[in-house]
Design a protein around this nucleic acid. Structure first.
Lengths: 249, 249
DNA sequence: AATGTAATTTCGCAATGCGAAATCATGAGG
DNA sequence: CCTCATGATTTCGCATTGCGAAATTACATT
């Protein structure tokens, strides 16, 4: 039983918006009613309301609904209130320029890291994640950087909720492997991740602190074949640590 | 009087989320109640619900609420369903690499253009807008590119809603000036915008069509001083038009 | 036309959310 | 340490809102 304070109509409305995130672009009343377990009349009322408010639009022909750019407004506000991004951005630009690597910053949300911003290297990679995308903590450099320095209770809770999935042959598969890795990371202060999420891609990351607590992470990614360049990776590690230290407090 | 179908609780909940977008990062119950014109008990119920659902978190000390990264999930889904972005991205990467300019794509939302994605040039500019940010239609190259090719009724309606504000000495100040500019744009097929929004910054943009209707725009920006480089700007115009044509259908 | 499928609206009833007021923190003075 | 003040949270009875079954409408197919 929910608290007396809980407003169910709001939950339903947001549930509908969320369904759009998971599924395809355009959905019909029936689709929504089905996937939310609502009566069709109910689903229709909510869709109608969201349309009125401008968060959804309806194709005239098919009567199907799709998200409008207005929904972005809400999320982007959240992004901009994260000053981690603002503190890091100049360093990201500079690092990308100097080493021609992709730099990014991210924060934790449950068992995912959320990419706040990224500066792309000039080399076009087949792989491209965007601002706001989510990646699993346990197989990303930034994820592990944050995880390693999380408060104990938060960390153990989180570790239990992780559902391990093998993305490449380098992906860690068990909590134990991850624990061991985290211990190593705590020692060295940074993460070196070799193709744990995507084949062909390496990353280096370090945590950023705010008042002594992990706030997020700074990371860089580059193609494996660049490992040949003499001294590159050690320079990158140095760079990552230096920047993470500079913006931490 | 609203339709019988309209669900007020959802409106209130979303209104609260929206207030966070406009104002500062963290808000108290009283703040919300004030700016939404709600009873404090009501505001509290909604904040409580949003917290339960994970869209807000509450600082233990101050009892104030702030947005969580979870709200991003909703908006980002909208971004990813826009295949305009996916179609353009490879060309953006290539263009940025070739000319070392910042490339971007955007769509229209009411009187703003919303930046879907951008690839930064290597030159670090003091100015930096991010994914999801909104810029006024009437003083951006991409905005005018879209506006110029909008259906008549949509265009006239929109023109009336624009509130002109002078950002630089090049900013257009009246509907008439804008109209004249749009006519010129329709002739040439592209927009050349010189420091209309930000001093020191030039942009070139062209509309992208989908089934013959404007879907969004592709644009590039660069520092004014690069206008010296012989042939650069005409090459850029050619590039913009070529790419816009390629991804249109 | 007849049939089927999906969207929309109606309507009476019950649950939900409302606001005034009470209660519970927390902090600032005295 | 107590009091007052301020803000957050909860209670509670009542009116409103939102619910679902069913009716209606809108289209596409046969």
């Amino acid at each position: 039983m929910k608290s007396r304070q809980f407003i169910q109509s709001l939950e339903k409305g947001l549930m509908i918006l969320k369904v759009f995130s998971g599924s395809r672009a355009s959905l019909s009343v029936t689709d929504i009613a089905g996937s939310c377990g609502m009566n069709m009349a109910t689903a229709h009322r909510y869709l109608f309301t969201l349309k009125e408010l401008g968060y959804l639009e309806q194709e005239a022909a098919t009567r199907r609904y799709r998200l409008t750019p207005k929904v972005l407004k809400i999320g982007v506000a959240a992004l901009n209130t994260m000053d981690l991004k603002n503190r890091l951005l100049p360093h990201m630009l500079e690092t990308t320029k100097t080493f021609d690597v992709t730099t990014q910053c991210a924060i934790l949300d449950d068992t995912d890291v959320v990419v706040l911003d990224r500066v792309r290297s000039r080399e076009v990679v087949n792989w491209d994640i965007g601002v706001g995308s989510r990646l699993p903590v346990y197989c990303t450099a930034m994820g592990k950087a944050i995880l390693a320095f999380l408060e104990d209770e938060a960390q153990t809770g989180l570790l239990q909720r992780i559902r391990f999935e093998r993305h490449t042959r380098h992906t860690l598969g068990t909590p134990e492997e991850l624990q061991a890795d985290l211990a190593r990371i705590r020692d060295s202060g940074y993460v070196f991740s070799d193709q744990e999420l995507t084949m062909g891609l390496r990353s280096i990351a370090a945590p950023v602190f705010r008042n002594g607590r992990v706030e997020g992470a700074f990371g860089i990614s580059y193609a494996v074949n660049r490992a040949n360049e003499a001294g590159l990776e050690s320079a990158l590690v140095k760079q990552v640590l230096q920047i993470a230290a500079k913006v931490s407090f």
